[in-house]
Design a protein around this nucleic acid. Structure first.
Length: 740
DNA sequence: CGCCGGGGGTTCGGA
DNA sequence: ACCCCCGGCG
């Protein structure tokens, strides 16, 4: 057990205190992952539990994977059979085993939030509500919230309807639940709620798991919601060996139902809980740790702890002040270059973290121009692209033809003569017969479609049945290839010769490649389509493309996705009132405190160097906004801040430190009109073939050809990243680059 | 049927 | 700026 020697006293106690309820409050960078992995390895090596008797719930697939690998290193291959994964993946697995008990099939579909929103929109329309008054997104959020608190449609109807608004939510909620059920589909919330229903209805199933899971660990406990809390408590009720790990200072998911109450409830439910505090930070310099402490001290809601470090003092936090976001991005790039030189950092030592995905654009442009390799995490992930969702919809139909959202996507794509008229008739008939859309299609001859439509439907149904056959008998790859070809999807994208069409076709091919890889390396699963699909809905962009992981690139991501990661040098950009903290959160203390915790998460990602940055103006929602520096900048104790070189910037720093924060709502549009955008085009009358130019949107490129005269003068330009475009010079704003 | 342009709303984060 | 939705037209 010599691995225990790597631990400090608090860590070792947290590892060895395995019996009964335990709570580990783990400050940022305090070796939390190490404690969790050692604890699981310890349980196995002590002979206290077999690997399959351990349940470890993590927040992301990535965390699960990483921990599993680390345990394998200590405890060997046996670690493979630990039940380790996200709540959603573990319980979808369990639900598939017992699906029939809940009148689902094991091939039930998991609706992602897009699917569920689309269903809600459809229901609002069918119930003839005005979606301008009753916003689908808001109804979706309320339904989700209710479900997270284990309130079903029935209970909502009886206890929570108080006015017209909740009345509508209630009606939609009821219809939504029925439709999901009819479609043999579950949404993300169901993956947490249904296990509890299963356990309530079938105590013997609950007992089985209660006895099986001798030790339960829950990571990122501060980000669990009520349903997750209850699952944990139910499953742990027999052995009561539950260990929750978390940091209240890093709770950043209240917006989706996570509740800090869980930590308090845990203490209430298990009065004899042993509490461990990991307070020594091994990650960051003492300046960074202290700066982080000075920030979080502004929060009222927090557990008492004292995060400290014995690491070197390090550099002060650098404040970057810029005129606008382009300027900001350039400065970040310059600093990356400088630190690469001075500190011998690699590209992968850097992270640029922002509040909203939209902010990645300017950073991306600057990095590209500077020739610095980067990778963006998050944003529109592969599996959320249209063409991939289309392809996946076909695969879903092959396994679960009752899947209404998949059906709606593909029934007329590629076009096959089943238009809106037929679709409305289909929806109405399904409602009338109280069956799934698929059942109506199978019985189309009784449903009163036009002859044309009926024939088209017949062909569609036969096609899908063919796909079902392939899915049952063949490997995932061969079934998927068959489906891609015979659905007409590949043909459809292939015949689209635009850049976009080509990339869609390529993406579908890439999906097929991924399925092929899955078929060849099924790990411990069978390489059939259903096991592939079971994973897809729960994948996030963090999980895909692990192959690129060791590439030497700068990382760009939101603060939310940065949780759990660390980098030598971190840039926190866009520190402006209205952006971070966000406009919506300024009104309430709770929400502001969540933003502050998010800032704290960002600050504590940095190991050696931390830069925070704000721009005085920023192009947001299409127009320029003037912003005040974020209040969070002021909250860093000035002794930890580095005055920038140059008088102007020193003055700005003083201003931040001394002037009270104005109370007016930021983000107000600048009243001054033109010039719109600060991209000013050069005079293009001397533009000639071969010149290097820059376009605001398309980036840099080279002029291939110029034709036409005067008004009609057009240039064909090959852009470095966006391909060939023909621009009318009368309108195009081009900057002629000096390197001609 | 599908493309295009106009208009309105967005307004963050993600398993 | 972007996305979504809708209406008009080829």
């Amino acid at each position: 057990m010599d691995f225990l020697n790597d631990l400090n006293e608090a860590q070792r106690q947290a590892v060895e205190s395995v019996e009964g309820p335990n709570m580990i409050i783990a400050g940022a960078g305090s070796g939390k992952t190490r404690v969790i992995t050692y604890r699981l390895a310890f349980l196995m090596q002590q002979g206290l539990a077999e690997s399959f008797e351990l349940l470890a719930l993590t927040f992301t697939n990535k965390a699960a994977k990483e921990m599993r690998e680390r345990i394998e290193k200590i405890a060997g291959a046996e670690a493979k059979s630990i039940w380790m994964g996200t709540f959603h993946s573990i319980f979808s697995r369990i639900l598939r085993v017992h699906a029939e008990k809940l009148n689902y099939t094991k091939d039930f579909t998991i609706y992602d939030s897009e699917d569920s929103l689309s269903l809600i929109k459809s229901i609002i329309k069918e119930l003839k509500y005005d979606d301008k008054v009753h916003k689908p997104k808001s109804i979706q959020a309320q339904i989700s919230r209710a479900k997270n608190f284990l309130i079903d449609a029935e209970e909502y109807k009886h206890k929570y309807v108080t006015d017209e608004r909740t009345e509508v939510v209630s009606k939609v909620f009821t219809a939504y639940s029925a439709r999901c059920f009819k479609a043999n589909s579950m949404d993300f919330d169901d993956l947490l709620v249904k296990p509890l229903e299963l356990f309530a209805a079938y105590p013997e199933i609950l007992h089985r798991y209660q006895h099986q899971f001798r030790y339960i660990m829950v990571d990122e406990f501060q980000d669990t919601n009520y349903a997750q809390y209850l699952i944990t408590r139910r499953l742990g009720a027999v052995h009561e060996n539950i260990c929750v790990v978390g940091d209240d200072a890093q709770s950043i998911y209240a917006f989706r139902g996570a509740t800090i109450e869980n930590i308090l409830n845990f203490k209430k439910d298990y009065p004899d809980v042993k509490i461990h505090k990991l307070e020594q930070n091994y990650r960051s310099t003492s300046i960074i740790v202290n700066a982080a402490n000075s920030i979080i001290a502004n929060n009222q809601n927090q557990l008492e702890k004292n995060v400290f470090t014995e690491n070197e003092e390090g550099d002060k936090v650098k404040l970057i002040v810029s005129e606008n976001e382009l300027d900001e991005a350039r400065k970040v790039v310059d600093l990356i270059r400088e630190q690469k030189q001075v500190n011998s950092f690699f590209h992968k030592d850097f992270a640029i973290l922002y509040r909203t995905n939209a902010q990645s654009r300017s950073m991306e442009d600057a990095l590209r121009k500077g020739g610095i390799p980067y990778r963006i995490y998050g944003g529109l992930s592969f599996y959320r692209r249209k063409e991939i969702k289309d392809m996946v919809a076909y695969l879903r139909m092959a396994l679960n033809p009752r899947d209404e959202e998949a059906l709606k996507r593909i029934i007329n794509f590629p076009t096959r003569g089943i238009g809106p008229t037929s679709m409305n008739h289909l929806l109405a008939t399904a409602a009338e017969w109280k069956v799934s859309l698929w059942e109506v299609l199978e019985n189309a001859h009784k449903a009163g479609f036009s002859v044309m439509a009926e024939n088209a439907i017949l062909r569609f149904v036969n096609m899908i049945k063919g796909f079902q056959g392939a899915a049952q008998t063949e490997t995932a790859f061969s079934a998927a290839s068959y489906i891609a070809k015979h659905s007409g999807l590949l043909q459809e994208f292939h015949s689209d010769e635009s850049m976009e069409g080509r990339s869609r076709w390529q993406n579908v091919q890439e999906l097929l490649n991924a399925i092929n890889e899955f078929t060849l390396n099924p790990e411990d699963k069978t390489p059939t389509l259903d096991s592939f699909l079971a994973e897809v809905a729960l994948l996030t962009d963090q999980d895909e493309k692990d192959k690129n992981e060791d590439k030497d690139t700068v990382s760009l991501m939101t603060l939310h996705s940065a949780k759990g990661l660390e980098f030598n040098s971190v840039f926190l950009v866009g520190l402006e009132e209205g952006l971070f903290p966000g406009m919506m959160s300024i009104g309430s203390r709770e929400e502001l405190e969540e933003e502050r915790r998010l800032f704290y998460v960002g600050v504590t990602r940095a190991m050696k160097k931390l830069q925070i940055s704000y721009a005085r103006t920023r192009n947001r929602f299409g127009s320029f906004t003037h912003n005040e520096p974020s209040r969070f900048i002021k909250e860093i104790k000035p002794t930890y801040l580095q005055p920038m070189s140059g008088d102007m910037q020193r003055n700005i720093l003083q201003k931040i430190a001394t002037t009270p924060m104005p109370q007016r709502r930021p983000g107000v549009k600048d009243p001054e009109p033109a010039p719109v955008g600060d991209f000013v085009g050069d005079d293009l009358s001397n533009l000639t073939n071969g010149m290097r130019i820059e376009h605001n949107k398309f980036g840099t490129g080279r002029v291939l050809q110029i034709e036409g005269r005067e008004e009609d003068r057009k240039a064909t330009i090959l852009f470095d990243t966006k391909g060939e475009k023909i621009l009318l010079l009368k309108y195009a704003k081009l900057r002629i680059l000096p390197d001609n």
